[in-house]
Amino acid sequence: MRFWFSVVRQAGRNLRQTWPSQLMTLLTVSLSVLIFAFFSLVYTNMINSSEQLGDDLRLIIYLEDDPGPEMQEQLRRKITNFDRVEDIVFVSKEEAYKRFAEQLGGHRDVLDDIPKDFLPASVEVIPLKNLRSLNQIKLFSQYLSKLPGTLKVQYGQEWVERFYYFTRLLSIVVFLSGSLLILTTIFMVSYTIRLTIFGRQAELELLKLVGATNNYIRTPFLIEGVLQGLIGSSLGIFSLFLLYQWIKGHFSGPGLLELFSFTFFTPEVIIAIIFISIILTTAGSFTSIQKFLRI
């Protein structure tokens, strides 16, 4: 208990004495978390959107003839051999005709003189609703078009490709910004602590001389690291939340944000971001003070 009383008092004294550099570090941590969390939020929402849009996404393979039960089984096997899918639906010529008639509604009489087998049979493949499946659709369609008895494979090719490249680009941005900001955060925190150590060299040497344990010397710096991570990341997340509210307020109504339901991080994700920030800043503190303690 007395140990904690002493080290907390030391940490408080140090924060008071070095507040300008502490403030700079805090702002760096906040900005790093804000930038990373921003890209991460956009990326997460894009993936969610792809799932929503994926509800309507299906590959339709038009076949030359109605497949018999054996042929259906063969096709099913061929498709699932290539990739896992959510569902495979066989539509016979007759069923295609019925669907078309239903779609025409009151105008179905235009079909009266047309033979009931004029529409080709087809197989509807509904891919799994995840980004990997979405990315694979092009390959999937190429594979399906080569199956025997296939006339044509149809899907929203252009849209899927654009979406695929955009999400790829975004994932690279998230990865790069994340890596760079992690390095920046560790560097800034360890640099500040090193400056603090440099400014308090005389005191730390005296502490060693009078018999302070390494924990006694180290813990106040670790407390500073924890506080920088906690306060810095909370500020960053809070700023992003304000930005998110502002965007929602200004871009609500019919538009892009209506099409994609834009959501903020879940509490679990927020806690994870704060926790990881604390780990990073504390690691920055730890490495700096360890260098001093080894001397």
Binding site: A202, L206, L209, G211
Partner: peptide, 17 residues
């Protein structure tokens, strides 16, 4: 550290804060 706690030291350069 524990041993140093039992040693009182007064150097010529004081080492005061």
């Amino acid at each position: 550290a524990k041993l140093r706690q039992r040693i009182g030291v007064a150097y010529q350069d004081f080492k005061l804060l």
